[in-house]
Design a protein around this nucleic acid. Structure first.
Length: 400
RNA sequence: GGAGAGGUUCCCGAGUGGUCAAAGGGAACAGACUGUAAAUCUGUCGGCGGACGCCUUCGUAGGUUCAAAUCCUACCCUCUCCA
């Protein structure tokens, strides 16, 4: 069969392609007419922090680009500016055009760590929705029924559990679907949870007499807790903007049974290499070392080999050998001596005096390796000293 | 428009006049154990002060009371059923 090689690349680390046969046809046609396919991926510019879970489909887009196709990033500025009229979610107030622009710029900066800018097209939703009239909107909506949407799990669940569900949220798949029409998408990328929305895009294209897009669905990357999907709100994510040290440390904190999963979806290793790792794991070698390799790979992708090695050395020093990290926040004090409570709160290592007292009682506090348990301890400041709370909170105290 | 249910500390959720900073669970944090983790066990989990105390908190704003998350009034919001 033709396009075996292409399909192999495309299918790597992909959960599902619907329908696969159409994709092959599109590849054939693209080659014959010498016309690149248009690969769509939509982002929501409500925030600007991209985590490595987002990058799973983005990496797929890069692979398409390397095969000569065009990546089209849709910025959902239209919906972001409308916001949530029910006001139930205070964390998502309507954004101003400026905010959306700023978010989008930051977002793209992060995506370009993976994407090829030469083959990336950035489109704004408002380009087409900004002009659209009510008549057109209604026509579009008439294509779908409520039952269709309630068949969708997330809608049904929210409906059944009595969680507020705004009309605009129900429209979301319709809007996203129209994006595919507007940019004439051949393929839409997304996580499996996007299946419904992406398939709605197919219906929409068909309705507009267009060739339907193919859905290429990536698996959902689990968060560092190993239980929930990676998401910002659960604080179980590894961000593109995280420091190398944090990326390394966060990777090391994932449960062992997630190691292979991460290799598959968060690194660039080949299928064969990952298979090797899998057998090595099964043979009973210490997962720690394999996880370290994973952490190294992840850091390497964003910061290069050198930095990855440094992050590893640092991690080993701090956690395995209990040494102090090379860099930490520094605080200069003029005083000759200070109470331990004041130091803990002034350095923000503890949020309140109460917390500071608790940490002391629990034996979590030390200065230069000497444990301090008394609330009344007065510390004589002299030269540089390292204040430590728990395993990972450090501050350098400097006598000014 | 009508009828009913409801809005509690990061989340879920108990609490219907004082014994409530508010049960229980989850998350989080600390300690032990480890491989850095997970699991497990122990502890902490609004703020200030050594406990006793004080301040802020139970949708919002007022009110009743010696005393309110709990009662009253108005308002805002959510859900369900009927139309």
């Amino acid at each position: 069969m033709a396009f075996d090689k292409e399909m192999q690349i495309i299918m790597k680390g992909v959960e599902e392609i619907v329908p696969k046969a159409e994709l092959i046809k599109k590849l054939e046609k693209s080659a014959k007419e010498n016309k690149p396919l248009r690969i769509k991926y939509g982002i929501d510019p409500t925030g600007s922090d991209v985590h490595i879970g987002h990058l799973v489909p983005i990496r797929k887009m890069r692979e398409f680009q390397d095969l000569g196709h065009v990546g089209v990033i849709i910025i959902g500025d239209f919906t972001a500016q409308i916001g949530d009229p029910t006001g139930k979610d205070e964390s998502r107030p309507p954004l101003t055009a400026e905010q959306v622009k700023a978010n989008a710029a930051k977002y793209m900066e992060q995506l370009y760590t993976v994407l090829d800018p030469e083959k990336t097209e950035v489109r704004w939703q408002s380009e087409w929705f900004g002009e659209m009239g009510m008549a057109e909107v209604l026509k579009m909506l008439g294509k779908f029924t409520l039952a269709q949407f309630l068949a969708h799990d997330t809608f049904r669940k929210r409906y059944e559990t009595g969680t507020p569900l705004g009309m605009h949220e129900i429209m979301y798949p319709v809007l996203q679907g129209y994006d595919s029409v507007a940019i004439e998408a051949d393929v839409e990328l997304g996580a499996t949870e996007q299946k419904f929305n992406i398939l709605t895009g197919r219906d929409m294209q068909k309705y507009f007499g267009m060739e339907e897009q193919v859905a290429v669905l990536s698996p959902i990357l689990m968060g560092t807790d190993g239980v929930n999907k990676m998401s910002k709100s659960l604080n179980n994510y590894i961000a593109v903007f995280d420091t190398p040290k944090d990326k390394y440390g966060k990777t090391m904190s994932i449960p062992d049974n997630m190691i292979v999963n991460y290799f598959n979806y968060a690194t660039l290793l080949s299928v064969d290499e990952i298979k090797e790792i899998e057998t090595e794991l099964k043979s009973g070698s210490n997962p720690k070392f394999i996880k370290q390799r994973l952490a190294r790979e992840i850091v390497k992708m964003y910061h290069g080999e050198e930095v990855a090695k440094q992050a590893e050395a640092e991690f080993n020093a701090v956690f395995s050998q209990g040494k102090i990290p090379t860099d930490m926040p520094e605080f200069t004090f003029e005083e000759d001596e200070m109470s331990i409570l004041a130091l803990l709160t002034d350095t923000k290592l503890c949020a309140s005096g109460g917390e500071a007292r608790r940490m002391l009682k629990q034996g979590a506090v030390s200065i230069d390796g000497n444990k301090i348990t008394s609330k009344d301890e007065v510390v004589k400041l002299d030269g540089e000293m390292v204040l430590k709370v728990g395993k990972r909170r450090f501050a350098k105290l400097i006598k000014g």
